[in-house]
Amino acid sequence: MSAPDARVRYLLRLGDTSLVLGQRLGEWVGHAPALEEDLGLANLALDFVGQARLLLSYAGELEGSGRDEDALAFLRDAHEFANLALAEQPNGDFGDTIVRQWLIDTWQLQLYAALSTSTDERLAAIAAKSLKETRYHHRFSSGWLARLGDGTPESHARVQASLENLWRFTGELFAPDAVDEAMAAAGIGPQLAGLEPAWSALIDADLKEATLRRPAPQPFPWHGKRGVHTEHLSHLLAEMQQLPRSLPGARW
C-alpha cells in the first residue's frame, strides 16, 4: 500500500467513525428520556457530523478522484465504510447509548490529543478542534454513566449489562494493522498500543465512580476499520443514504 493510500484510508476510518456515531445519536432526536438529554444528544450528533465533514472532505481531496464529503458519506456501501464496529451498534436503551458514547469519548480523548501533534498539519488542526468538543462529550457520558451505575439497582444492573455487551468491541480500538502502522511510522498517527494505558486508567476511574465492574477482555470478530461490520451498519446506511440515492443531486 502506498503512503497516500494509507493516509486516505486512515482519514476515512476517523471520518466514518464520527459520521456513523453522529447518525446514531441523531436517531435520538425526539425520543430521549428528557428534553435536556434530547438536546444534549443532538448537540453531540452535530459535533460528530461536523468532525466527519472535515475529515471526509480532506480524505476526498487527498484521494483526488473527485469525491467530496457527500459522495463519500452517501454513495459508499457498508463494506466500504471504515468506522469502528463499536460506533455502529444500535442505540438500545439510554444506558446502551451512554456506554457506547463513553467508550468512544474516552478513546477519542487519547486519540485526538495524540493527533493534535500529527505531522499532518490539517489533521492536527481538526484533532485540536475536536479535542475541545470531546472533553465536554466525556463530561456528559461519564456523568450519566455514574448516575446510572450508582443509581437504582435496576439502572445499575441494566448499565452493567450494556457494558458487558459492548465491551467486546473495544478490542478493535487498540489493534493496529498496516494502515495504522504506516501512519505511526510517518508521524501522522499515534502508536495505538501507546494510547491504551491512559485510556485504561480513565476507564477504571470512571467505572469506580459509577460502581461498575470492568468486563474481562474478549476476542473481537469484527474489523470495522477494514470494512467487516456487524449487520447493523447496513440498516443505518439505508436510512441515512436513502434520500441522496433516490434523488441524486437533490438540493434543499
Binding site: E36, L39, G40, A42, N43, L46, D47, Y136, R139, F140
Partner: peptide, 13 residues
C-alpha cells in the same frame, strides 16, 4: 446549571 446543552451548540442552560 440545568443542562450543559442549550438551544444552540455554544450555550448551556
Amino acid at each position: 446549571r440545568l443542562s450543559e446543552f442549550g438551544s444552540t451548540p455554544c450555550k448551556s442552560h
